[in-house]
Structures are given as structure tokens and as C-alpha cells.
């Protein structure tokens, strides 16, 4: 029923770019959810929108604008987050960036189209020239998460114990935010800031409900992100409905399925041995 046309020409770039984006979103989203930084995962891509708008105003590749602003936001949230409340700082960073973004977009002459594509993505318009840069930034973000898998786990689960062992909780926090910013700057132009958020949170939240094994949960998070993206592209191509609709619905459905799976596992009872109280 699917047309084979959707794997040829321009669409090949779409599949490649979207696949890279899904892997990155699944991996970084996994730790964003685990560390309770879903809000930062929302704020950084949306804030980075200002950078993209600024870059296009200056006539620079938007990826550079995204990268600079995303990393600056990450460092800002990381640096101020220890003094003030994390969510408050994140929210302030977000509104500041959105304000700037609105200003840049209004100065620029092609604002409406530009703004729309940064928020909702241009997954069907990825050019061959974009693919290598996306791939390089993607590999960097992946290596960043993979390399720090264990310290990230340790600081997420037991910050005080980690600190006592000489693993800096604040250091890991800033490190993670910067990796997320890097991931953001390459993924926003492809899927857009809003879609990126659902792709980072939905699959990761579902994965951690389904299994308690850390490695498997990470792999599942990536797998669910991939399935969501692939299905969404195919459906969007066929129906001409917006991609965002399918990604959003897919994320929510997988999350609910995850909750249901965990509920069922809970009902099945454990294999734990319990000793009676004295």
C-alpha cells in the first residue's frame, strides 16, 4: 500500500536524517527523563530557535546559530541552576530566548516560513548537503552519552554517593546539558523544536516503564524513537497530514503502552522472598 517513491531521491535524505535524529533523541531523551530534566529538554530546543533565527538574519547556516545558543543556554541553566531553583532558571532561559527569537524573526523578511519550519521541522526538505553535518554532530552527541553512561547513571540515581566517590554531580549535570544542546542543534532543523521534545520524552518515558534493566531501557528508548519516526514519516507521506501529529500521537501511545506493560508486570506478582517481621 505504501508507495515505493517514498524511498527515492530527496526522500532518501529524509530517511537518513530522521533515523539519525531518532537515535540521538532516544539516547539523550533517556537521560533527560531519568534525571528529571524533561523541562530542560523542552527549553533548550525551543530557546535555540532564537539562535537559528539570529543566524538566518546574519546569513549564517542555522545549525551554527542553533549550536551556539543551545550550548549557551545549557551552560546558563547549569551554572545558575545550583544557586536558584532549576526549573525557575530553565523557564527564565526559555522565555528570554523565545523573546529574542520573536524579535529576530520579525526583523527577518521571510519570518513566517522560517519560524514554522524551526518549530515543526522540514523533515521532507533535508538536502544532501545537510546530511554529513547532521551525521557528524549526531556521532558526537552519541559518543558523549555513551562515554558517560555509568557516571550519568550514578549521579542520576544517587547523587550524594557519587559525590563522595569523587564524581562531580554538577560537572555531570553541565556535561549532560551541553551534550543535549549539541544534539538539539542538529535535530531541530530536521524535526523542529516541538517534535524533538516529544521524540525525546515519549520513547524514553515508555522505555523506563517497560524494563528496569538500564542497558535494555536505553536500547528500547532508541528503538521506540526509531519506530515512531519511521511510522510517522510513512504515514505523513501517504496522508499528507503533518508529521508532528503522528510523532506526538505515537509518543503518547507508546508511553501509555509502557505504563500498561508495567501495570501488568506488577499484577503478575514478584519472585521476591520476604522474611516475616520479628
Amino acid at each position: 500500500m505504501f508507495s515505493s517513491l517514498m524511498f527515492t531521491g530527496l526522500m532518501a535524505n529524509t530517511w537518513i536524517a530522521a533515523t539519525i535524529v531518532a537515535v540521538i533523541a532516544g539516547m539523550t531523551g533517556f537521560f533527560a527523563v531519568l534525571r528529571g530534566e524533561a523541562f530542560a529538554a523542552h527549553a533548550i530546543p525551543n530557546g535555540a530557535f532564537a539562535g537559528a533565527a539570529g543566524a538566518s538574519l546574519l546569513g549564517v547556516n542555522v545549525i551554527w546559530g542553533l549550536a551556539v545558543v543551545a550550548i549557551a543556554s545549557a551552560l546558563g541553566i547549569g551554572a545558575l541552576g545550583s544557586k536558584a531553583r532549576h526549573d525557575v532558571v530553565t523557564a527564565l532561559t526559555l522565555v528570554l530566548m523565545l523573546g529574542l527569537g520573536a524579535l529576530f524573526v520579525s526583523i527577518s523578511n521571510q519570518y513566517a516560513q522560517q519560524a514554522y519550519s524551526l518549530l515543526f521541522g522540514e523533515v521532507f526538505g533535508v538536502s544532501s548537503a545537510d546530511v554529513p553535518l547532521i551525521a557528524v554532530l549526531g556521532v558526537l552527541a552519541l559518543a558523549g552519552i555513551g562515554l558517560a553512561f555509568r557516571p550519568l547513571m550514578l549521579t542520576s540515581a544517587m547523587p550524594e554517593v557519587a559525590e563522595a566517590r569523587g564524581v562531580s554531580v554538577r560537572g555531570m549535570e553541565i556535561y549532560f546539558l551541553v551534550v543535549m544542546a549539541l544534539a538539539t542543534s542538529m535535530t531541530v532543523p530536521v524535526v523542529g523544536a516541538l517534535l524533538l521534545f516529544s521524540l525525546m520524552i515519549g520513547p524514553a518515558a515508555a522505555a523506563r516503564s517497560i524494563t528496569a534493566r538500564p542497558g535494555l531501557a536505553l536500547a528500547l528508548s532508541v528503538a521506540i524513537a526509531l519506530i515512531t519516526v519511521w511510522l510517522s514519516i510513512a504515514l505523513s507521506y501517504q496522508t499528507n497530514w503533518p508529521l508532528g501529529f503522528f510523532v506526538g500521537v505515537g509518543g503518547a501511545l507508546f508511553y501509555l503502552a509502557g505504563l500498561a506493560a508495567r501495570g501488568l508486570a506488577g499484577l503478575g506478582g514478584g519472585t521476591r522472598r520476604v522474611h516475616p517481621a520479628a
Binding site: 531519568l34 528529571g36 553512561f149 547513571m153 550514578l154 540515581a157 524494563t211 528496569a212 538500564p214 542497558g215
Partner: peptide, 24 residues
């Protein structure tokens, strides 16, 4: 400890062994 975190008791103990090390 967050009740949702994907870590088994086993994994927590394993982190005691090499949780500060890089990579998987």
C-alpha cells in the same frame, strides 16, 4: 531513589564496582 529509575538492585551494586568509569 526515584521509583521509576530503570535500575535493578543488581545494577546499583554494579555501579559500586565501576560506576565512575567511562563507557558501557
Amino acid at each position: 531513589i526515584d521509583s521509576d529509575i530503570p535500575l535493578r538492585a543488581w545494577d546499583v551494586v554494579a555501579l559500586g564496582l565501576d560506576g565512575h568509569k567511562l563507557g558501557f
